[in-house]
Design a protein around this nucleic acid. Sequence first.
DNA 1: CGGCAGGTGCGGA
DNA 2: TCCGCACCTGCC
Length: 267
Amino acid sequence: MGVRLRTRGSLWNPSVNVTVYGQRPVLKSDMKRVLEELGYRFDWYEDYSGLYKLVRKDSLLASAVKRLEGMRSFCQESLYDLLMITILLQNTPVRRTETMTRAMLETYGDLLGFDGQRLYCFWPAERIARSSEEKLRALKVGYRAKLFLRASEDYLALDEQDLRNRDDESLRKALLAIYGVGPASVDYLMSGAFHRKTALNTVPSWEAKIFSRILFRRPSASPVRILEELKRRYGAWRGLAAHYLFMDLCWRHREKPIDWFSKLMPY
DNA sequence: CGGCAGGTGCGGA
DNA sequence: TCCGCACCTGCC
């Protein structure tokens, strides 16, 4: 299915106009399930007041919230999609992640046309599980070929709804049991696919370079130092706070290019 | 062209 | 439980 979201209403009286496109007619029952799923993925019904309270004593976060107030910890991807993304991010520069992602989508993904757009969606897990390491390696994904296979198999044995109901600790354990998921990926999965606001326990090096500039106005504070500072400032809200700071930077960069950011991000 | 970046699993201490 | 190594490719 293809989904178009359009914002309606206002910050304090928000509403979203949802249009759903399907290869077969979209039934009322489909629509109900889509809306429930969107509510979860875009974190529409959660209370963010704990984050907004931190604004009073943190001017850095205050300026990000000023621009982005109301922004949710959104994640349009499913758990499986994001799992594949974390593997594509592992042990590689961003540019190579892009190359590998394109190759994987063109070979295994589905190209959807709707609403005047042509967009790839991720492949179903079964399609990779039925493929082979050799075929995957031909796409220049290196040793990640094995990770895609094993992670897809492990994913197929999981129940995503069950995982959503678990507490942080139990969820973390279940995710780490997926082959190819370590400390860095588990943070992405918990904060992205499951909206756990605290999930930020390791800082990948490319993010450290960016947060060093944001937090300390210097180029190269260590990942450990960055994590300490985020914990000190934002405590249990550090994952979400970091998301706000990063998105604020992206928007400021988009309005007026920031030199050091262009050098770190290849866009 | 050689050297290096980058997250995870695994084997060994 | 912690440490160090292997893995693969593209960029510098």
